[in-house]
Design a protein around this nucleic acid. Structure first.
Length: 370
RNA sequence: UCCGCGUUAGCUCAAUGGUAGAGCAUUCGGCUGUUAACCGAAGGGUUGUAGGUUCGAGUCCUACACGCGGAG
């Protein structure tokens, strides 16, 4: 069982500072997971992730790694940690999100999901058992159950059936983990995913079904898929009350800096999102002074750093004008430098949030920051 | 000097005599468990100049200017 400890609780909200331990190290919460779908956080070398960005854990993806390079290569490499030379914890998503994002290429059946590979059109069938088996081959420290991430809006009738499917699969995921063993030396834990779209009674049912199964931690899935932000906050707030206090809580796919702080306040411990990396590649940078686009012409002769308070590699060495030039010229260094900065900012944000919770000042700090 | 080809958006180029467009560039948006170094929108034109033919000319005719190639 994954041991999650709460270090300090906020007096005025559900925010909490804690940590959990894996065989690849401790993760202090609240924490943000850089997204490394294909065994790489796009445009950022593992060395920067560890030393400059101070990432404590990264997320990777079962579906993508299964298609390429494939489980045979991953096993030959001795697992993903060895393969990508990353020595800290890895969490793998199951492919449930690809049910949502590759909706034209898949068919959902009662016992699993049929995918047409987006790479070569070949057919693949994902079941809860199969997804656990692949995550064994990957060797992720934290595995995710196979679920269905439904779009927004979602008809009630569809959400009822989908939530039941995710609950049924949760049982099979759990059994598959109990029936199999890790291929490598590290322990592997399994997190359940609470679904239910925007319907509170379905979130309640989903949470109840999953809590019974005693997962190592619990995620909220199916949010940040297009619903209004207030609705996302409300569902998060509602759902964290249904989740065990002594298990890590993961809000999948969220989000913007303000979404993360608001969700910490509502009791979430870990987050992942493509936003800092994808937006970096699209010339959008985050800072303590807000978000801005290095595409804008006003930065062409702005020789200040992206953020005067930032201590990241990019800000220590380069100006906005230079970054803008690199983006305009289509130079790949732009993608790397902006990604390093954004991830550094996201990590600093959650690390600072943790410190503020411990100091008993989270609420005031959050209000000033958002 | 003659012959041929060419001249259309900032650039490279489209457009059977019938509402002048595209790509790139520029400017501005959007990205939330990555099919995304991606996607979208906007601005931008006396079609080299001056005439002519025609209901109508970027398109046909004449002259001139400029560029490229060839001949002498």
């Amino acid at each position: 069982m994954l041991k999650f400890s709460v270090v300090e609780k906020d007096n005025n909200s559900k925010a909490r500072a804690g940590y959990f331990e894996t065989d690849h190290g401790t993760v202090e919460t609240p924490m943000f997971l850089p997204v490394g779908t294909q065994g790489t956080v796009k445009a950022v070398d593992q060395n920067y992730l560890e030393t400059d960005i101070k990432a404590q854990i990264v997320l990777s993806n079962t579906y993508h790694l299964y298609l390429r390079p494939g489980i045979e290569i991953l096993e030959k490499a001795g697992g993903l940690h060895n393969f990508m030379n990353w020595h800290k914890p890895i969490l793998t998503d199951s492919g449930g999100y690809q049910v949502f994002s590759l909706s034209d290429l898949r068919k959902i059946k009662t016992d699993g999901i049929e995918f047409s590979s987006h790479l070569d059109g070949s057919k693949h069938f994902f079941t809860p058992e199969k997804v656990i088996q692949i995550q064994r081959s990957i060797g992720s420290d934290l595995m995710m159950v196979l679920d269905e991430c439904v779009p927004y809006p979602c008809e009630y009738e569809y959400a009822v059936n989908s939530t039941k499917l995710t609950s049924d699969w949760a049982i099979l995921n759990k059994e598959a983990v109990e029936k199999t063993k890790p291929l490598y030396t590290q322990k592997q834990y399994l997190l359940g995913i609470i679904q239910g779209s925007i319907y509170k009674e379905l979130r309640e049912k989903s949470a109840a079904d999953l809590v019974k199964l005693e997962f190592d931690g619990y995620a909220i899935g199916g949010l940040a898929v297009g619903e209004p932000t207030e609705m996302m906050y409300e569902m998060t707030d509602f759902t964290t009350d249904l989740m065990p206090e002594n298990k890590v809580r993961y809000l999948m796919g969220v989000g913007r800096p303000e979404n993360i702080l608001e969700s910490i306040e509502r009791g979430i411990d870990i987050f992942d999102c493509v936003m800092p990396t994808r937006n970096a590649r699209h010339a959008i940078v985050f800072s303590w002074n807000g978000v801005y686009s290095l595409r804008n012409s006003k930065y062409k002769d702005d020789f200040d750093k992206i953020d005067n308070e930032c201590s990241c590699y990019t800000c220590l060495n380069y100006s906005k004008a230079y970054l803008k030039h690199l983006f305009n010229a289509g130079e790949i260094l732009a993608l790397e430098l902006a990604s390093i900065h954004n991830l550094h900012f996201y990590l600093e944000l959650v690390i600072e949030a943790r410190q503020q919770i411990i100091n008993g000042n989270f609420g005031d700090w959050k209000d000033k920051t958002v």
